[in-house]
Structures are given as structure tokens and as C-alpha cells.
């Protein structure tokens, strides 16, 4: 393995983890969506780099899909929805930023420990990649858990999915079909949730999930 190629792949994957942490730090929705777009851009770069060093041209398509949908279409339309709903300034965390960041750091450490031990015999590039990917997945999940706004939960879910793609491209020979289907499923999830968002908004005047809890007579 070329040391330079390894370093760049490492840089891009680490950058993805860093941006995931940045997303955890954002408490305004519009800022969060923008950081997510950056996340998708870095993912696309990482996938493209993998395509180059693995000589796997189909990964370029994956990168293009990531760039097109996740970095452009979804953030733009989400921002638009925000503006229409007038919720782009809302603060929506359940747990404070500080503890969330600490938890995120802990998760990264955990995924490093687990992955580096489990994959002791495999290709070092794939090892690092998998460890970073697991961190991204866990951070996405953490975001879904610590936010109560539907929009940020959707974004958490999509960043989790980014982690999955990172893991898939790091390992050699993932068929393109799977990625396309994954991408489409995310798109569909986005559409469905978007529609629900409007519905919820129409009915309850807010996109705060807490309103739904109150509706069912539950304490938040």
C-alpha cells in the first residue's frame, strides 16, 4: 500500500468523524443541515479516493450519488422546508451539548478499541476505515437519541447511513447495486419523513416530537 494513499484515506475518514462531532455540537437546525452537507461532501471525497486507490470505477458512481443527493438535494430541500415552517432557529437538544460531546468522544474510543481488536489480521487500510465508520455510525445514533426534533433525527439517521457507506467502500468489492438501493431507501425515508413533517406541522403547529408525547398523555 502506498503510504500517501493510506494517509489521504485516513485523513478523509478521520475528517468524517470530526464532522460528525461538529454535527453533535450544532444546536440550530439550519447550521446542522449545512454541516451535514459538508459531511456528505467529505464522504463523497473519501469514496472517490477509495475508487482511485482500489481501481474500482463503480465507486465513482457511489461518490457522485452521495454528492448529488446528500450534499445538494437533501440539504437544500430540508433548508427550504425549514424556511417554510419557520423553525430554522429552533434549539432542540435533550441532553446538554457538553455531556453529548463527552459521550461522543467515549463512543469513538469504544469503536476504536473494538474494531482494532476484532480486525487484527486484516488490511490496515480497511481496519482504520472500519473503526472510523463505526464511530460515525455510533455518533449518528447518538444524535438521533439526544435530539427531539424530527429534522435532526432524520439528519442523524442519514449521517449514520454515511458511516455505513464509508464502511462498505473501505472493504473491497461491495457491489454497486447495494449502494444504489441503500441510497434510494434513504431518499425514500427522507421523502416519507418530509411528508410526515408537513402533516405534523399542519396538525400540531410544531415539529417538536414532544408535542406528540403530550398528545398521548405522556410526560416528556
Amino acid at each position: 500500500m502506498d503510504q500517501f494513499a493510506f494517509d489521504v484515506a485516513h485523513l478523509l475518514a478521520g475528517g468524517l468523524v470530526l464532522i460528525s462531532l461538529t454535527m453533535l455540537y450544532q444546536d440550530r437546525l439550519s447550521a446542522l443541515i449545512r454541516v451535514f452537507a459538508l459531511h456528505a461532501v467529505v464522504l463523497a471525497l473519501s469514496v472517490a479516493w477509495q475508487a482511485a486507490i482500489q481501481h474500482a470505477p463503480h465507486l465513482y458512481i457511489t461518490a457522485a450519488i452521495a454528492l448529488l443527493f446528500k450534499a445538494i438535494i437533501i440539504p437544500v430541500s430540508l433548508l427550504r422546508i425549514m424556511k417554510q415552517l419557520g423553525v430554522h432557529r429552533e434549539i432542540d437538544t435533550v441532553v446538554g451539548i457538553g455531556p453529548t460531546m463527552l459521550a461522543g468522544i467515549g463512543l469513538i474510543a469504544l469503536s476504536m478499541v473494538v474494531m482494532l481488536r476484532v480486525t487484527a489480521e486484516s488490511d490496515p487500510l480497511a481496519r482504520e476505515d472500519l473503526a472510523f465508520a463505526l464511530s460515525v455510525v455510533l455518533l449518528g445514533l447518538l444524535m438521533m437519541v439526544t435530539r427531539r426534533n424530527v429534522v435532526s433525527q432524520v439528519i442523524g439517521f442519514m449521517s449514520l447511513e454515511n458511516g455505513l457507506i464509508l464502511a462498505a467502500t473501505g472493504a473491497k468489492g461491495m457491489p454497486l447495486v447495494v449502494e444504489i438501493s441503500v441510497a434510494f431507501s434513504v431518499l425514500i425515508a427522507f421523502i416519507v419523513i418530509g411528508i410526515f413533517l408537513f402533516r405534523i406541522r399542519e396538525r400540531f403547529d410544531t415539529v417538536d416530537v414532544q408535542a406528540l408525547e403530550r398528545l398521548r398523555g405522556e410526560d416528556p
Partner: peptide, 27 residues
């Protein structure tokens, strides 16, 4: 049976973390 989505997700999340911790400590 009557939790919110976020709490269900938290359960999944906690279960995942516990399993990973077990893996990390066990191996």
C-alpha cells in the same frame, strides 16, 4: 409498550453500546 420513538431508539442505542463494551472487555 408506550414509549416514544426517541426512547425506543435510546434502548437500541444502549443495548448496542453494552454489547460493544462486552466485546471490548471480553476479547
Amino acid at each position: 409498550q408506550f414509549l416514544t420513538i426517541r426512547r425506543y431508539l435510546s434502548l437500541v442505542f444502549v443495548a448496542l453500546i453494552v454489547l460493544l463494551l462486552v466485546l471490548a472487555i471480553w476479547m
